[in-house]
Nucleic acid binder design. Sequence first.
DNA 1: AGGAATAGTAGACCGAGTACAAAATTTGGT
DNA 2: ACCAAATTTTGTACTCGGTCTACTATTCCT
Lengths: 213, 213
Amino acid sequence: MPQPGLRERKKQATRRMIADIATGLFVRRGFDAVTVAEIADAAGVSKMTVFNYFPRKEDLYLDRHLDRLRELEAVVRDRPAGEPVSVAMRRYQHGLLAAQHPLSGAVEGVRGFWSVLRDSPALRSRMVEQEHEIAELLAGLLTEETGDEFGCRLLGNLLAATITTIWHTAVDRIVAGDDVDRVRRDQLAVIDRAFDVLEQGIGPRREPLHSDG
Amino acid sequence: MPQPGLRERKKQATRRMIADIATGLFVRRGFDAVTVAEIADAAGVSKMTVFNYFPRKEDLYLDRHLDRLRELEAVVRDRPAGEPVSVAMRRYQHGLLAAQHPLSGAVEGVRGFWSVLRDSPALRSRMVEQEHEIAELLAGLLTEETGDEFGCRLLGNLLAATITTIWHTAVDRIVAGDDVDRVRRDQLAVIDRAFDVLEQGIGPRREPLHSDG
DNA sequence: AGGAATAGTAGACCGAGTACAAAATTTGGT
DNA sequence: ACCAAATTTTGTACTCGGTCTACTATTCCT
């Protein structure tokens, strides 16, 4: 028997094909201007099948979310014993940047990706929701460890706020036209500054948030 | 001529009436089980008029959002010169709690409010979006002050994460059946602990987040 | 090969939200 | 009080996302 099963392989292939065709249409004509019926048609499949694989239209575009959640879960779960989450998460962000991973935000591809997102409220809304799911995931994982419900929820939310801020910072600059390599070099400082704030606090003592080392 | 104009007053009255009638229906039968057509009918108004006042169905239930944004804006704008935002925001949260304001979360009314939210994904999603708008508002206001785009976005997101965590903590306990007065007393410590974490940082040094004073 | 699962299809259906043009109402000036 | 302009409200028809149901085709397992 083939390891994943023929059936399962076909399903994954179909899923990818639908998402790819959909993404292509979105990039060319905009998210709202493409109907699900069209996507189904272009993919040679029925509308029901599309919704079978993707519960919402938005998920056709933001289809890496589950992978991301799994990865973040691994970051938290597989960190060395006793290591603070923020340290593991900072290391992970450094890794994304070094690997030129799309999730670092500092990558050529975000231009096209964002141009679709920019003018679709529905899509942006779904993205915000996904960022919220990240916060919930982190909070849940940490609560499992310590049992401190409130503290971990707070920590999860702060962590999620930190990494989404880091990401948006890179994306904004690239979309604004900055050179990708320059942004990538600067992101190292951005990541460290963000996690420093998270770990040391926002003050009061040091100035609100001026950037002298 | 009456100051706000007759027309304007009537509009506000209509708006309130529609929202109130809608809320009543939602509480009785659940958000998803009530159609906009029904609401319009019950309010003696046409469907178009409903959408004239409330761009989305969800806004019929979460209609205090703009007020809240305005209030938060005032907190930031009207704070004493030189005072860190976190201090002003902490004071504001204390004030809400003392005034037994619904936005403190520690109020009898949240039980009904939440029960509707709980089983409507669309409604929860919109609420998350609103929380995101809070973060953006704060970030924008702070950026106006300092010009430090990245730092202020981070600060805005962290602040928003903090206050939403505080709110949800109270709501969760009350929904879980805790006595409202007890929750209200405990919230003082919750607020202070949250803002302490925000100001002092999450570590590393102190344990991840254990609660010994 | 054959029967149990499972994936996909077709088509009707529902409700949110929009477009548009006609009708009702407020307003301000006279 | 009356008229004309501006603006709100309405009815109707429409689009599109998403669900439901019953039917067909494929894959799986023995």
